[in-house]
Design a binder for these strands. Structure first.
Length: 274
DNA sequence: CTCCGTGCCTGTGAGC
DNA sequence: TGCTCACAGGCACGGA
């Protein structure tokens, strides 16, 4: 479900809702998100700890807990958190309820059950996936120079695959990648090495601006995405090409097409994207 | 290296 | 109405 803008919105909301609260209980309804650890062990590791801060790296959510523990959560396709200021019963897809101090609770829901929870010692966190991948586009080190340097290392990659590969940059997913390539006017099937400097600059700006707009509109809800209050985002109304095959290009009127690149459905305008 | 298929799950929508 | 199929916001893994 969520890409960088959605995760960023979730993390900002989590900070205002649960930062400083103590985890007083954890209840599981399914446990697919816990590889290699039982729900009892997990509860034993987190109960009694205070949520000191909530951070994001790419699409990963990091709960920094008291006692130097870090809970790393990846929502994958359909994972979501819903904040409840008063106790409510679990819903059909509720997998976990975190009971917090102040009688509030955080419900984790996941239709497809792909999401993952992992616990780290803070000093071991550098070994965790979020810190072994590429830079995050919202961090200061996402400059045009770094973008060009990383792209130069992968001249044979298709540009769509390059943007989706989290080892290059973290946070881009299928929706924002197609929209950024449309905005930059670049054919998703081209190789990064074929792009001239002007095109690379356009792409850099398109990636940055599309992510910022996604955040400003509180994410994209094409189907499942909801924020911490259960509300949909607004960027789905700004999508130009994603899931619009067969419709006219909003810029030139040419019929938008769908193809498969990097194993993902890819939407583009064959006229505007060259 | 890159690409590709597969698996993990459940739901939706189109076509028959 | 009901069945089957393609597709769905992600990522890890193994093989070519």
């Amino acid at each position: 479900m969520p890409e960088l803008p959605e995760v960023e919105c979730i993390v900002r909301d989590l900070r205002s809702c649960v930062q400083g609260k103590k985890i007083v209980g954890v209840e599981f309804f399914f446990e697919n998100m816990l590889p290699g650890i039982t729900p009892e062990e997990f509860a034993g590791q987190v109960c009694g700890r205070i949520i000191r801060s909530v951070k994001r790296r790419g699409k990963y959510i990091l709960f920094y807990l008291s006692g130097d523990k870090v809970l790393e959560i990846h929502l994958r396709m359909t994972g979501r958190f819903i904040f409840h200021p008063v106790p409510v019963k679990p819903e059909k897809y509720t997998g976990v309820i975190f009971y917090l101090s102040g009688n509030i609770s955080l419900h984790f829901q996941d239709i497809r059950k792909f999401a993952t929870f992992r616990l780290w010692e803070k000093q071991e966190l550098y070994r965790a996936t979020p810190f072994r991948l590429g830079p995050d586009p919202l961090e200061d080190n996402f400059t045009l120079e770094s973008f060009l340097a990383i792209m130069a290392k992968k001249p044979g990659s298709k540009i769509k695959a390059f943007l989706l590969d989290q080892r290059n940059f973290m946070g881009m997913g299928n929706i924002y990648t197609d929209e950024a390539l449309y905005r930059a006017g670049i054919d998703p099937a081209r190789e990064t090495g074929e792009l001239d400097l002007k095109e690379k600059k356009r792409l850099y700006k398109a990636v940055y601006s599309i992510l910022q707009e996604g955040i400003a509109l509180r994410g994209t809800s094409v189907s499942d995405y909801r924020d911490l209050r259960g509300l949909p985002g607004g960027f789905q109304n700004r999508l130009k090409v994603y899931r619009r095959a067969g419709e006219p290009c909003p810029r030139c009127g040419t019929t938008l097409q769908r193809t498969v690149i990097a194993g993902r459905g890819t939407y583009f305008c064959p006229q505007c994207q060259v």
